[in-house]
Amino acid sequence: MSTIAERIAAAGTGNAIELRAVSRFFGALAALTDVTLSVRPGERRAVLGSNGAGKTTLLNCVTGDFPPTSGTVRFFGEDVTTLPPHERIRRGLRRTYQVSLLFQRLSVRDNVYLACRGVSRGRFSFIRTRASDAIMQSVTDLISLVHLESVADRPVGELAHGQQRQLEIALALAGAPRFILFDEPAAGLSPNERADLVAILTALPTHIGYIIIEHDMDVALRVVESVTMMHNGRIFKEGAPREIEADPEVQELYLGGGHG
């Protein structure tokens, strides 16, 4: 149960993410069943579980890519259950995708530019953006944050897999995010790139919370303060990383299941 302080926080600004009895059916198949979850502003949470546990569906329900069949989704206290994805993004939600969803025929710079423009005014502008515009500075900053300066003007389709994953991260950091959903950001990254990723995640300003889905325990448990375990579309355990690691049930179902 939540503490009094948490309740006060929830009544004021609200939890960053709050799912209440969320279910998602695909036909007769339940991908999520009655999931209730709350994440405080600034909290960093890992969602773990085997393939098909419903982790990505959970993120899709939060962003609205696939809205829930039933239940409500709140973002910083506001009911966003029926809002289209772009409205949620404009409210400060961000996400990355498990399989890179990028603009293959545009350059890296254009990709990042679109992400910055998407959460600012002038999306429909018929005037070209000048190089001196403030937005171009943030584009350059984001590109250097993920170390893609050398390929900034190349079409994304020509990039290596690891670079595309880095770009995924950059797109999610554009503008002023309040909460980010990372869907397996480390998948396919080299050890060096993983270290970079951990550095980026830990260096995020403390007011930005996130949920991270990650199979790599080294990455996942180093960058979060709480863990939610999912199985067959349900949440079956929540706790600190240490508790989860030590939990025999978890070990049997997940960590001991030879997953990695």
Binding site: P84, H86, R105
Partner: peptide
């Protein structure tokens, strides 16, 4: 052009 390459991602960046 972004919507041409990937409409779903365009929604997800606002």
């Amino acid at each position: 052009q972004g919507a041409r390459d990937n409409p779903r991602r365009m929604e997800a960046i606002g």
